[in-house]
Computed example of a mutant assay.
Amino acid sequence: MSPEIELTILMPCLNEAETLAICVRKAQKFLTDYQVTGEVLIADNGSTDGSQQIATVNGARVVAITAKGYGAALIGGIEAARGKYIIMGDSDDSYDFSALESFMQKLREGYDLVMGNRFKGGIEKEAMPFLHRYLGNPVLSFIGRLFFKSHIGDFHCGLRGFNRESIQCLDLRTSGMEFASEMIVKASLSEKITITEVPTKLYPDGRSRPPHLRTWRDGWRHLRFLLLYSPKWLFLIPGLSLLLIGIALSFILILHPINIGNIRLDIHTLLYSCSMIFIGFQCVTFYYFASIFAVREGLLPEKSFPVHLFDFFTLERGVLVGITLVLIGICITVQLFRVWTHNDFGDLTNPVKTFRLAIPAVTLFVLGIQVILYSFFYSILGLKTIHS
């Protein structure tokens, strides 16, 4: 990396011959007007319309990225950049590369990631599809803020600046459109990355063809990424909710039926409430397994998982809890067996009363076995953490 180059203006490109020249010229104008020592870098993702020649003629440097995808192009471009700072943006003329002074100012102040916010800067008519503006972006940005305690108001703004070295430490990996979310998520989870926002205006892109972005496909990919990077919201919170509701409902139904107006909840509801306990328990255990794996693989920072939990939840304690649940289930089963013997192993006179105990007995027995097995597996996963 050449120390004399302060800024790289990076544009991913895939057949952008219609708009690439004006984007490069605007970027060059910014560097000249604000006396910034920099370069314009085009990360070409296999264009076949002469975009490479257009970029070169207009003074940009072109690097060929063979791996396909928006994220792959940007990751390759970041690797090839020579500047201390990078400002990236789409090469469809939807952002004004001649007006990057607010980004540059924040980068020079020491921020590691400077996000553009189109909702604060203004969105011109027909610059953003209706679903993107009023549903997709607001909902996904809200989910991102909720899951990762981020203050970013526009998770998917394509214009953003960052310190090259700081962002490379995040080990960004996604090759598709979800790259935009990955950068913010990992930056928000990191204790070392400082983030801020600046208003950014969005213009209608200058292309005559449809954009590469696909509303539902790429929207799902963003949502999927946010969920996968937040085991707490994907597994723990739904799991705990099901577990607590199932336990409470089952406890009441074991004692007596529930009457709500003309509706009577009895042993059939008890069967489903016990199923909620199983599902909830599975979700909670998956949360811990997924968190350990993500931290171990470097996908999430170590602070995402409470390592001290291994000190509290030991193999011995888990096995003891599991055995206790199994024994309670067996004791109830023995009592039911006695009732059955009194009926000479024939039909039970009060099957409703019997099932009110049989269902919890089976639930406790199976749950206890699961606790024992998961305790062993949990301890195996924690071996490295305990000894490190």
Rank of each mutant, 00 (worst) to 15 (best):
K68A: 02
Y374P: 00
G89V: 04
I328N: 04
F251M: 12
P238D: 03
G121E: 01
D347H: 12
Y34L: 01
A81K: 07
H151T: 00
G368Q: 10
H212I: 00
V139I: 14
Y85D: 00
C23T: 03
T200N: 04
R164I: 00
K149L: 01
E197G: 08
Q28R: 11
K125H: 13
F235D: 06
A361V: 03
A55N: 03
E191G: 15
I323C: 04
I380E: 06
C283E: 15
A99S: 10
F312S: 12
T194E: 07
V62E: 04
L240F: 12
K26A: 03
G83C: 02
G322R: 11
F376S: 02
T324M: 12
R145Y: 06
S241D: 00
T32I: 06
L348F: 08
I258L: 08
L348Q: 10
G77V: 11
V114T: 04
G176C: 09
G76H: 12
V326I: 15
G368Y: 11
S94T: 03
G69P: 09
I247D: 04
T37N: 11
G161C: 06
I237H: 06
T174Q: 13
L367G: 01
A60E: 02
L113E: 02
I195Y: 12
D93H: 09
I123G: 03
F337Q: 07
L74V: 11
T196N: 13
A64C: 07
K120F: 07
I9T: 03
T354F: 15
